[in-house]
Design a protein around this nucleic acid. Sequence first.
DNA 1: GCAACTTTGTGCCTCCCTTCACAAAGTCGT
DNA 2: ACGACTTTGTGAAGGGAGGCACAAAGTTGC
Lengths: 206, 206
Amino acid sequence: MARLPGYLRALTALADAGIASVSSEELAGAAGVSSAMLRKDLSHLGSYGVRGVGYDVERLASEIAAALGLTQDWPVAIVGMGNLGRALAAYRGFAERGFRVIALLDRDPRVVGEEVSGRVVRPMADLTTLVRDEGLSVGVIATASDGAQDACDALVAAGIRSVLNFAPVLLSVPEDVAVRTVDLSTELQILAFHGQRNAVAEAVAP
Amino acid sequence: MARLPGYLRALTALADAGIASVSSEELAGAAGVSSAMLRKDLSHLGSYGVRGVGYDVERLASEIAAALGLTQDWPVAIVGMGNLGRALAAYRGFAERGFRVIALLDRDPRVVGEEVSGRVVRPMADLTTLVRDEGLSVGVIATASDGAQDACDALVAAGIRSVLNFAPVLLSVPEDVAVRTVDLSTELQILAFHGQRNAVAEAVAP
DNA sequence: GCAACTTTGTGCCTCCCTTCACAAAGTCGT
DNA sequence: ACGACTTTGTGAAGGGAGGCACAAAGTTGC
């Protein structure tokens, strides 16, 4: 369910605003989906709503968090200390949502040992230890395109089965490994496509 | 068609490797889709393939680029010079794919005037001028969550209709404005979900 | 020039996701 | 305690995207 994080985000905002109960209509609006879809999604988790009243914000938030597996922690390592890697290392968004970045790695011996955002960059060979001793379970690939598959292979070999990839390449992995790719250029190209459609529509009907 | 950028990426790689012609089977493999789907997608653009031979790599690449609107340029501005904004400003991935970052902006007067990655940070009020005189057409929101809607409103008011949003919020915009949201935490949460499913599956059948 | 082979383009079918609509269930006022 | 009202949960309908399979078309070898 790719929409659960969106619901959780909306619920957290409501809880911060001190709201204790919410109807499917309101929550759906806050999450940007239809109320029927929201109810169907939530019904798959179990019946946590009360008819005539709505959903208990705190209760539902913790049920969703549990369904997403956020009750345990998922230590993260970032591979590749180029521009993007350093940026991600400095980014606080991970920690704010409960993902601890426990290591920064690079394959270049000249970068290993350098300090980035208060952490010492470690060699790729440390991966096995990190997985075994520190429970490392998520790898973030922030290398250049040509190093991404190697980085991915190293992560998989060390036992990691969740990979977040920022390189604009198609990674090949065993089927029990989950990969999510975030490609900024692809996003911009999709926006360009929409922009062009707008321009064409405008030319036809000014 | 959200898959066109993927095809274009694969075609560019093939062209760099000196390959002039490709079958739907091969290209589909390189882009990570089925051959039937690839052919159906391409047939919507027009018939650029030759039966018995395949597709001309250069020709198809330029047709897709045209369909995506990449023949014209789409100047980009980045709003919000926090950690993420500075990272994106330093990132070369945009320029490599033909998107020129022409301005960096921030609403904080203490940040305006500062130099970031060789560019002077400009105030939000410059947006109108940028759109009118420099053809600015894409806005990237890299502010904190609570400033994202304001930044978005400013972009829309200046006439921008393509927005790439990195803040973990649901932006409300007029319907002729295209928004794509990239939320790193959401991606990690989805990975956590898969990771948990793996762990459960393993416990059931070790 | 013809036949065998390769590969595209596409009609049809299937399946999943979304939406609609309503009955079940629980609350609140009297 | 009861009836009117609100809101959930879900069965049924609708739509769209992906996969299958084959005919059309073009190439290549002889």
